[in-house]
Structure formats: structure tokens, C-alpha cells
């Protein structure tokens, strides 16, 4: 059974490495500042006792006040997983650092979020629409898109 790590278990290590980056840690997940998502993810991937080598998914949710990005990582070696979240409050030009350099599997997923939710990923090598055509107006998965 994949052990779901709680946010509290990981938060102490992260606080040491990146003071002030963690906003909130709960039973099920860990909420970090959007600007530090790449550094935190890099640490989670490279730290030997965490060793998150596999990215399960990236999901984006529109909560009107903010966009929430949800990342779930799994370590194949230790068979444990962690849910990492970040929030983006800017509705006009939301942007977060891309994790494609760490997990290539994020490539299409980030493009899809950019396409349908309108969140830019800084550092993505090829950020363009993926399922809708170039020139399409709006981002359909946003709650205010009707």
C-alpha cells in the first residue's frame, strides 16, 4: 500500500531548507508559496529519504478567489506519496514556476492547464495550447467561462 505522507511529516525538513516557503501543512497535504514551488519540488525529488521520482498528476482548480494547483508525487523506492499544493491569486496573469525540468511528464499536463485554465508556467520550454487551437479565446475550465 502506498503510504500517504502527511504534510506535517515533511514540513520540518522544508522549513529548514526554505524558511517561510510553507504556508500551511495539514493531514493530507502541504501548501507552499507559488514562487517556491520549483525549489520545494526539487528538494522533494533529490532528498534521498523522500526521493519523489514519479509525478502522478498535476490538477488545477478554480476557486474564484484563487487558482489552486495540486501536485501528487510518489516515490517508487519507498512507496510513499505526498500531495503538494500552491495557490495563485492573480486572475489576470496567473503564473507559477514550471516543474518540467524535474519531471518531463509535467510537459503536457502544464500545457493543458495553460490551455484550459490559463495559468502560465515560467520556464516551460514549449508553452502553447494543447487541445484547443491557437487563437482560441478564453480558458474553458475557469468557473467564469460560460
Amino acid at each position: 500500500m502506498t503510504l500517504a505522507l502527511s504534510g506535517q511529516e515533511v514540513v520540518a525538513k522544508l522549513e529548514q531548507q526554505f524558511p517561510g516557503s510553507v504556508i500551511e501543512s495539514s493531514e493530507n497535504n502541504l501548501l507552499v508559496k507559488s514562487e517556491s514551488i520549483f525549489d520545494v519540488a526539487e528538494y522533494l525529488k533529490s532528498s534521498p529519504e523522500l526521493d519523489f521520482d514519479y509525478l502522478n498528476y498535476i490538477a488545477a482548480v478554480d476557486y474564484y478567489d484563487y487558482f489552486e494547483l495540486v501536485y501528487q508525487f510518489t516515490s517508487m523506492k519507498h512507496n510513499h506519496s505526498l500531495v503538494l499544493k500552491t495557490r495563485c491569486y492573480d486572475r489576470e496573469n496567473p503564473a507559477v514556476p514550471s516543474v518540467v525540468r524535474l519531471w518531463r511528464g509535467a510537459d503536457f499536463q502544464e500545457r493543458e492547464i495553460y490551455d484550459l485554465m490559463g495559468i502560465s508556467f515560467e520556464g516551460h520550454p514549449n508553452l502553447k495550447r494543447i487541445v484547443l487551437w491557437q487563437g482560441f479565446e478564453g480558458h474553458p475550465l475557469r468557473k467564469d467561462y460560460l
Partner: peptide
């Protein structure tokens, strides 16, 4: 919100 993690998409990367 219903997000679908589709294996076919990732396998194409």
C-alpha cells in the same frame, strides 16, 4: 472539479 489523470497522455510524452 473532476480532473482526469489519463495514462495515454503521459505515455506520449
Amino acid at each position: 472539479r473532476c480532473h482526469i489523470r489519463a495514462p495515454s497522455l503521459m505515455n506520449l510524452t
